[in-house]
Amino acid sequence: MTSAILVSILMTLVAASTPILLAALGELVVEKSGVLNLGVEGMMLCGAVAGFAVAFSTGSTGLGLVAAAIAGIATAMVFAVLTLSLTANQVATGLALTIFGVGASSLIGAGFVGKTITRLGPVFPESLSGHPWLRAVFGHDIVVYLSLALVFGVGFFLRRTRAGLILRAVGENDASAHAIGYPVIAIRYGAIAFGGALAGLGGAYFSLALTPMWADRLTAGRGWIALALVVFAAWKPGRLLLGAYLFGAVMTLELQAKAAGVTWLAPELLATAPYLATIAVLTMMSLGRKTGRLDAPACLGKPFSAS
């Protein structure tokens, strides 16, 4: 009995963590290239609505996921053109992207409110995914496994490949990277596109797997939590995984407390937990570090122009 409860808690935890993990992993790569994209929340919302719209129209959640990634890339490109090609302020443009994502997703989603789709299901056959405790390992959907694979993939790419080294060089010292002959702007375009795809997927995880339906501002600030998570992880993919699952645990706690009918704390105050936890984590990170600006890439947020 207790093991069944533990397994079900674990399943909730993994599901709650996955969208933040995806979005934060994308942002980590973007920031490693020296760009701060504050528009994660906006890209997630665009992915969420595009994924739902396509899944509803075609009946295929797989196509929905593809559409979500494409929508994420498309919105990310708006940010890229403005900040890289037109050297607009990254903070302001990121904010604009979020405001845009809220408006655009609400506009597109208006026709889909109240519609339902089939939830994204587990990958493995019923004998494994329905097993009382084996489902803790085999009961997840494709996006969960993809997110875990991507953590290792991104970690390997950044630390062990030449391309990853160049990306980090661009983020640490764009002027030198440019002087050696690396295409700084093109590399950053690529990183921003990757970040957009993962944010879009993360957003779609809400509308295709967690809820599964469309509602305005469905992601409820998870994009901002993803941004905080990158700081928490000190720009390391492994720690990002840990951090995302920690946040997932906080959110699961909130859900479990609600389900258990906790009465001494109002549900509204319980709902503040993830946001307060984010502030607490950011504070602890700053208290824990010894010198300098954490481990942020040196060129983070600074505009670059070749001329």
Binding site: L82, F100, A110
Partner: peptide, 25 residues
């Protein structure tokens, strides 16, 4: 026009502002 269109126009305006800022510099 749906209500959400207002937000779209506002966001579009901010994008255009940031884009036209290039003319200043």
């Amino acid at each position: 026009l749906p209500q959400a269109a207002t937000g779209m126009f506002q966001a579009l305006l901010l994008f255009m502002l940031l884009a036209t800022d290039v003319l200043v510099r």
